[in-house]
C-alpha cells in the first residue's frame, strides 16, 4: 500500500492558525461564536482552534462543544456505530454563529447530518463550516467556509488525518 504524507505537523499548525484568523475576520470579531467539533477528529481540531482563538483575541469567550451526528446519518443501516457525547456550551446555539469543525470534507453527508442535528438543538443565526482537508467529490450542495488544505484526490484514494492527541503525531496521509 502506497502512503504519502501531504501535511505534516507545522503545516497543520499553520493551517489551523490561518483558519482561526479567518473565522475572526469573517465574524468581524469574536462575539457570538460557538465551535462545535464533530467526533472524533473534528472534536480535537475544534479544541485546537478554540485554544488558538483564545490566544489571538483576548475578548474571545471560549464556547466549545461537541456535536455527535451518528443518529442523524442517512446510512445508519450500513454499520453499527458508537454514539458519542453531544455537548452544547452553556450559552446554547440559538442566535449564535456556529462553526462546525471536521477533519475531512468528502461527500458532504456528515455535514448534512450535522445540520439536521443542529435543527433539533436550536436555531443558530449562522452556521459555518471549517475543515482541515477538502478532498472534493461532493454528493450534496455543501461547501466549506474555512479550509486548511484543498486536496484533489481520486475516489479510490483514502485520506486519513492523524492528530497528536489520539495518534501521537500530526499528519495528513493519502493512501491508495
Amino acid at each position: 500500500m502506497q502512503e504519502r504524507v501531504v501535511l505534516d505537523s507545522p503545516d497543520i499548525d499553520r493551517a489551523l492558525k490561518r483558519i482561526a484568523h479567518e473565522i475572526l475576520e469573517a465574524n468581524e470579531g469574536p462575539s457570538g461564536l460557538v465551535l462545535l467539533g464533530i467526533p472524533t477528529r473534528g472534536k480535537q481540531l475544534a479544541e485546537r482552534i478554540n485554544a488558538l482563538l483564545t490566544q489571538i483575541d483576548p475578548d474571545y469567550q471560549p464556547s466549545l462543544g461537541v456535536l455527535d451526528i451518528t443518529m442523524y446519518r442517512d446510512d445508519v443501516a450500513s454499520a453499527e456505530r458508537k454514539i458519542h457525547q453531544t455537548l452544547i456550551p452553556e450559552c446554547g446555539i440559538t442566535d449564535k454563529v456556529v462553526v462546525l469543525v471536521d477533519d475531512v470534507l468528502f461527500s458532504g453527508r456528515t455535514v448534512r447530518a450535522a445540520l439536521d442535528a443542529l435543527t433539533d438543538l436550536g436555531r443558530p443565526r449562522q452556521v459555518k463550516l471549517a475543515v482541515l482537508v477538502d478532498r472534493g467529490h461532493r454528493e450534496l450542495p455543501i461547501r466549506p467556509d474555512f479550509v486548511g488544505k484543498n486536496l484533489p484526490t481520486a475516489m479510490t484514494e483514502r485520506v486519513r488525518v492523524l492528530l497528536s492527541q489520539t495518534d501521537g503525531v500530526d499528519q495528513v496521509v493519502i493512501s491508495q
Binding site: 451518528t70 443518529m71 442523524y72 446519518r73 458508537k82 439536521d116 433539533d120
Partner: peptide
C-alpha cells in the same frame, strides 16, 4: 451501556427525538 449513556441525554433535550430509525 456506553451508547445508552449517551442516549439518556436525549431525555433532557427540548426535542426528544432522533431520526436514526
Amino acid at each position: 451501556l456506553d451508547n445508552a449513556q449517551q442516549l439518556s441525554q436525549v431525555n433532557e433535550r427540548e426535542v426528544k427525538k432522533l431520526p436514526a430509525l
